[in-house]
């Protein structure tokens, strides 16, 4: 397979093709990922999440520019939702990143969620590995516009940036569980539209009260920014670097990587076992099995247990 070799030599088109093969779950997808795996593990994975329209893409554009200026190679994965009804998607994050899209050290790829919940696509994690193997120093994942509990990003990213805006609700919203718990760095963006100070103070208070029960030495900074006016960008870049440094010095990175690898194994196991058993379901019991359940002669549990007994035990 020449494609993987070409990609490892730095061929962008080959990289792009490999990503497609992985995303499409093509037959040689696992073979490709296995070949690339030894080359992974050296990049900082940065997750950028927050509600739709909070300015994630514009902020990323600035982040990328600053990273490139520092001499880093940067990859961006921008995730937008696929339609549950048609499978189609409109991927529009790139529009905000045109400024950096022609730099030879930058590679940006848009992905639809293709039926996965949680804010990033199932395939995102694998494509991150591909970009790692390509030698990107910094890989930025932009989640879909996240709701309150789209926290899947924490399982892949080393550094999570939560982007919020002023006027997104009162102090009770800040107290809620979910996305407000996952930030390593918080950005109150669109500070130019006003009242950012209130939001900044509320988040700071939340972090201060939380840090008492966590032994971590990292206290999440809260940055007031305006991606439009290019304010707060330098501070954000500094904090991203500082967090990366903290992870390495404290040894946290090893724990994160260990958890990530475990997740990869568990995810792959879940998917393969479940696909395997699903393929046996109909051949073993026929389509009538669902009728049996409908007639209450069987239950979903008895059917699955029979399947497991027969094929896995």
């Amino acid at each position: 397979m020449g494609l993987v070799e070409d990609m490892l030599k730095g061929d962008k088109r080959a990289l792009s093709r490999v990503i497609t093969l992985v995303e499409n779950n093509s037959q040689n997808c696992e073979e490709i990922l296995s070949k690339l795996y030894p080359h992974t593990g050296n990049s900082q994975i940065i997750g950028v999440t927050g509600p739709p329209g909070s300015g994630k893409s514009t902020l990323i554009n600035h982040l990328v520019r600053e990273f490139v200026r520092k001499g880093y190679k940067v990859g961006v994965l921008a995730i937008d939702p696929s339609s549950e009804f048609t499978g189609g998607a409109l991927l529009g994050d790139r529009i905000r990143m045109l400024e950096v899209s022609l730099d030879s050290n930058v590679f940006i790829r848009s992905m639809g969620t293709r039926g996965t919940l949680g804010g990033i696509s199932r395939k995102t994690k694998e494509v991150v590995r591909v970009l790692e193997a390509f030698g990107k120093d910094k890989i930025i994942i932009e989640t879909i516009g996240a709701g309150q509990s789209d926290i899947e990003i924490t399982r892949t990213a080393h550094t999570v940036i939560v982007v919020l805006t002023p006027e997104t609700g009162d102090d009770v919203q800040v107290l809620k569980a979910g996305i407000m718990e996952i930030g390593d760095i918080y950005v109150v963006n669109k500070a130019d539209i006003g009242n950012a100070e209130f939001m900044v103070e509320e988040i700071k208070a939340l972090i201060a009260s939380k840090s008492s029960n966590v032994s971590k030495e990292w206290t999440a900074p809260v940055i007031k920014a305006s991606a439009k006016k290019k304010e707060g960008i330098r501070e954000l870049v500094e904090q991203v670097e500082k967090h990366w440094n903290y992870l390495k010095v404290s040894g946290e990175i090893n724990k994160l990587e260990e958890r990530r690898v475990k997740n990869e194994v568990v995810d792959t196991l879940n998917r393969k076992i479940s696909n395997y058993l699903l393929s046996k379901l109909e051949s073993e019991f026929g389509k009538e099995i669902f009728d049996e359940i409908l007639k209450r002669k069987e239950s979903p549990y008895s059917v699955v247990n029979r399947l497991i007994k027969k094929f896995l035990c």
């Binding site: 962008k12 792009s16 048609t86 189609g88 529009g92 790139r94 899209s101 022609l102």
Partner: peptide, 27 residues
């Protein structure tokens, strides 16, 4: 989009270089 395709929308005022580079990166 409604016909099931994935559309990468690049908006207005693009240069040919931007368009071709994007087409390659997005495969």
């Amino acid at each position: 989009r409604d016909s099931g395709m994935e559309v990468i929308y690049l908006g207005i005022r693009n240069t040919p270089e931007q368009i071709v580079e994007t087409a390659i990166q997005e495969d």
